[in-house]
C-alpha cells in the first residue's frame, strides 16, 4: 500500500504501473484523479495536519482492505498552492475482480473527503475564502455505514 501527502505533482500512469508491477494475480485496477476546478477560482491552497493526515489516510486504507479483497491501494493527496486544472488527489485500487476495485475506490474517496484533515482555500477575484464542508459529502460517506448494517 502507498499513502503519500506531497506538494509535488504525481503521474497517474506511473502510479498504476507501480500498483501492479511484478504481479499476475490482479484482475482489475480502478483509479480516481481529482482536479482543481477553475471558473472563478484562480488558485486553490490545501492545508493539512501533518502526522494526523497520514494516520487518517492509513486508517481509511485499512478499513477498505477489511471490506474488500484488495491486492493493492494507492492514496496520494497534494498540499500547498495548486492552479486550476492541477491534479489534487489520486486513489487507486487493485483486486482480482472489478466490483471490489470500483466500490473500494469510491469508498476511499468518500471517507477521505470527510475524515482526512485537509482544508481548501480558494483565491478568487473577490478575495480568498475557505471552502465550506458539503452536506452531500457527509451523506456519501454515511451510506457506507448504512449499507454495512
Amino acid at each position: 500500500m502507498t499513502v503519500r501527502v506531497q506538494e509535488n505533482d504525481f503521474d497517474p500512469t506511473t502510479e498504476l504501473d507501480a500498483l501492479c508491477a511484478g504481479r499476475d494475480d490482479i484482475g482489475a485496477m480502478v483509479s480516481f484523479t481529482g482536479l482543481v476546478r477553475g471558473g472563478d477560482v484562480s488558485e486553490m491552497t490545501l492545508e493539512h495536519y501533518p502526522g494526523m493526515t497520514e494516520k487518517a489516510l492509513e486508517e481509511i486504507e485499512r478499513e477498505a482492505r477489511n471490506r474488500w479483497p484488495l491486492q493493492g491501494v494507492t492514496i496520494i493527496h497534494r498540499v500547498g498552492p495548486l492552479a486550476p486544472g492541477a491534479r489534487i488527489v489520486f486513489v487507486a485500487t487493485a483486486s482480482p475482480h472489478r466490483a471490489a476495485a470500483f466500490e473500494a475506490a469510491e469508498f476511499l474517496m468518500d471517507f477521505l473527503k470527510t475524515r482526512a484533515p485537509f482544508w481548501k482555500k480558494e483565491a478568487t477575484a473577490e478575495g480568498a475564502r475557505w471552502v465550506d464542508a458539503r452536506e452531500s459529502d457527509g451523506e456519501a460517506a454515511s451510506r457506507w455505514t448504512r449499507e454495512k448494517s
Binding site: 495536519y49 493527496h77 473527503k113 484533515p117 485537509f118 465550506d132
Partner: peptide, 10 residues
C-alpha cells in the same frame, strides 16, 4: 489537542 473546521479535502 487540535481544533479545526470540518475537513474539505479530496
Amino acid at each position: 489537542i487540535a481544533l479545526f473546521p470540518p475537513v474539505t479535502g479530496g
